[in-house]
Design a protein around this nucleic acid. Structure first.
Lengths: 146, 146
DNA sequence: ATAAGAATGAGAGGCGTTTTCATTCAGGGG
DNA sequence: CCCCTGAATGAAAACGCCTCTCATTCTTAT
């Protein structure tokens, strides 16, 4: 459990490093992102997890904080099919996603061949690429059997 | 200009083939998708184009028809950054997209190397891939100069 | 400790999209 | 060719996700 007073937690220094004030909501949300078993969270997910811990943090704050974390490079925002945003801690290493359309399972991968081709294509078309995302959708091995 | 009575237009046969009744809204919307210079349209775009032609077709109908077209395989729906949907006529040939974050310009491309790697990766991870989309985002050559 | 500005919670508001429901229409049977 | 039935439509309300507003609370530099 994070404490605001006393020793410097990892979370608090991460926030300070990002130029964000150390507040309870920001600490708690960081806690949840780091502690949860799944890596991908909607704002609702985070909000519900906070409620379960008995924290009284508004949904608006969750959205604000996640957006700030995105600007600060702490999390990455994804737009999976369906439109709404999903957040994951930014481990610094880029990766792409494959999503199971039945159970929602998400796997991650990196492929150097694809990465290189993307850069080359952007260049050929005259673009300066700032970001890219490759989403594959399918049925995972678990769901295939049923 | 399409006519409901008289000769079979290309549009009407396309609708019939998809198992959809031939109605004025569906004909008009198909017209716009085929006639417009740009290939990617939001529902709003289509709605505005209808208004300009003096057609009194509701926005709800535009959404309904575009969704039906999607189910029928006539159009493809994309979720570019920003969340809202963009539609394009489905030419049958798969391609990926690169979007300019400044002016919204969209270019299309296909890369066999990437396509093959995707199939391979899905297999390695135990997925049966049903769909995939690669979106790259950047600044296009026009916007770069300014 | 205090003051000043930033962050928060609650609720209103916004935007794209979908649903509801009464009305209109397409198209097959007579 | 007209009628009938279920499908399609328009208008408006509702919806889900998200952002904004504003009064209050909290962080942090002093």
């Amino acid at each position: 459990m994070a404490s605001l007073k006393g020793e410097q937690t990892l979370e608090s220094s991460e926030l300070r490093k990002a130029g964000l004030k150390v507040t309870l909501p920001r600490m708690k949300i960081l806690d949840i992102l780091e502690a949860s078993s799944s890596r991908h969270h909607s704002a609702e997910d985070v909000y519900k997890a906070l409620l379960e811990e008995g924290e009284d943090i508004g949904l608006a704050t969750v959205y604000r904080v996640l957006t700030q974390f995105e600007s600060a490079g702490i999390v990455k925002r994804h737009h999976f099919e369906g439109g709404h945003s999903v957040f994951e801690l930014d481990q610094g290493t880029h990766h792409d996603h494959i999503v199971c359309l039945k159970c929602g399972r998400v796997d991650e991968f990196v492929d150097e061949t694809i990465e290189k081709r993307q850069q080359a294509i952007a260049g050929e078309l005259g673009y300066e690429m700032t970001d890219h995302c490759l989403y594959m959708y399918g049925i995972c091995s678990n769901c295939k059997d049923k």
